[in-house]
Amino acid sequence: MTVQRSDKRLIRTSEDIVMVRQLVREWAKTIGMNLVDQTKLITAASELARNTFDYGGGGVMLIEQVIDAMKIGLRLTFEDKGPGIDDVEQAIKDGYTTGGGMGLGLGGARRLANEFYIDTKPGEGTRVTIIRWK
């Protein structure tokens, strides 16, 4: 997989979640992603950015335009240095929440993306990566 371009955004306020959505929309349009795929990716980004803000105590999103063989897509990585997740399987399950939300963040983002990776250590933080291909 080759990275064609990349950018970073800090996620420290709820306005930053809006900025993340707008940036992802811009990049998705640039690679000519169709409207439904754009909407899915932006929604997934919104869920993950909110997790970073609400549970991770803020963090950073890395956005990358990637190509693999004949495919072009966007890879989003959300990283925080928060408390991490004890039980990842549980956290991905629908309806599981520690924050009073609907508990759709991780599981929902996984369904809305083509690829989903999570790396977390209790006490050290969480990194979630998603890819949506055009």
Partner: peptide, 15 residues
């Protein structure tokens, strides 16, 4: 509601 939003909401699991 826009169609793309409706499709996405169902996949997200929003009740």
């Amino acid at each position: 509601m826009r169609p793309a939003v409706a499709i996405t909401m169902v996949e997200l699991g929003l009740d």
